[in-house]
């Protein structure tokens, strides 16, 4: 375990559904997140990459306490979050905050920006009126918005401005860790760059730690110190951003990188059409990726590969029996 770890996740899992019906038959269960373990160091940005349905948003919601894991432990700064969130979400929210994917949907359409930003100041910090006014000014300044915007309603803002308000709200309680769940994927590219630059500046200024969730590899690469790749509810690869994205070990990461469109890149690889995500209600035994994997062998069909350090690199781990070689 890292000494400087701000957040430590051990074997966290989340099952939706399950249990039994009134008449005793089993209800179907989906393992949205399974057996995920990693730690986040203070001051770093951990990028989490994966396609839709891979469990990255469920993981994020568990870290901020909006959802409770059905297994495993999440430890923040030495405190067990799972136990704490159930008892006192406010205490956790002072330390860990969240920025939502859809900036407009995350702002109540019937509240002014002032009311929205004041909520954490009142409920989490208990500031009085004068202190709130001062803090509101600081927050608007931090995200480069004019203070007169405070008395407007969310629908009067563009997507980029709304997302900056979302960031200001997350900053309001002066948290240590911010979970950014696809913060720029709903924005136009020119606005995306503005928001990414603001996030970058805030991190240095307030000494923040980020978990940056995205499906866009290039965005994750540009903001992250370390990158974690998720597939079908499990962590398949984690390591320093540059290593993971330049010499991926897991075949899935490899596939992601080859599929990502980039300006000037003509030929995208094409897989067979029948290789898709497995059915979550009926997961295959062994490695979930093996049906799509060009390197799969018999062992992949029976055993789940453990997340192990790759040869020669201690901090680069992948869950694969036949990883790609380091170049």
């Amino acid at each position: 375990m890292d000494d400087a770890a701000l957040l430590q996740i051990d074997n966290a899992g989340r099952v939706f559904g399950g249990g039994r019906t009134l008449f005793g038959s089993k209800k179907p269960a989906v393992h949205a997140v399974q057996d995920v373990s990693f730690s986040v160091r203070k001051g770093e940005t951990l990028g989490v990459v994966g396609e839709s349905g891979c469990g990255k948003s469920t993981l994020a919601r568990m870290i901020v306490g909006l959802d409770a894991p059905t297994g495993g432990r999440i430890v923040f700064d030495g405190r067990d979050l799972v136990a704490e969130a159930g008892r006192d979400l406010r205490r956790l929210s002072r330390e860990v905050q969240y920025v939502f994917q859809d900036p407009v949907a995350s702002l109540n359409p019937r509240k002014t920006i002032r009311t929205i930003l004041e909520a954490p100041l009142i409920h989490l910090l208990g500031l009085d009126r004068a202190a709130r006014e001062k803090r509101l000014g600081e927050l608007m300044d931090a995200v480069n918005l004019a203070p007169e915007f405070l008395d407007r309603y969310p629908h009067e803002f563009s997507g980029g401005q709304a997302q900056r308000i979302g960031i200001a709200r997350a900053l309001a309680a002066d948290p240590k860790l911010i979970i950014l769940d696809e913060p720029v994927s709903a924005l136009d590219v020119s606005v995306q760059a503005q928001v990414l630059n603001i996030l970058d500046g805030l991190k240095d200024r307030f000494g923040l730690t980020y978990i940056f969730i995205s499906h866009d590899l290039s965005v994750v690469e540009s903001v992250s110190d370390r990158v974690a790749v998720m597939y079908f509810g499990r962590l398949v690869e984690i390591g320093p951003g540059r290593t993971v994205l330049s010499t991926p070990r897991h075949p899935y990461t490899h596939l992601l990188l080859q599929s990502a469109p980039a300006p000037g890149r003509r030929a995208l690889i094409s897989e067979d059409a029948n290789t898709e995500l497995p059915d979550p209600y009926n997961p295959p035994p062994g490695c979930a990726f093996h049906a799509r994997c060009p390197r799969g062998t018999d062992i992949c069909m029976t055993k789940i590969p453990p997340l192990e350090a790759m040869s020669g690199e201690t901090d680069h781990r992948a869950a694969c029996f036949h990883p790609h070689e380091a170049r």
């Binding site: 901020v64 994917q101 949907a105 995350s106 009142i122 709200r169 309680a173």
Partner: peptide, 26 residues
């Protein structure tokens, strides 16, 4: 189930506050 309700919860509002100050106006 909307995101602004989750956001209000993370802003420290209690269930009653969310129900009457966030959901009711809508």
């Amino acid at each position: 189930r909307r995101e602004f309700v989750d956001a209000a919860r993370l802003s420290g509002k209690s269930n009653a506050q969310i129900l009457f100050l966030e959901v009711l106006p809508n």
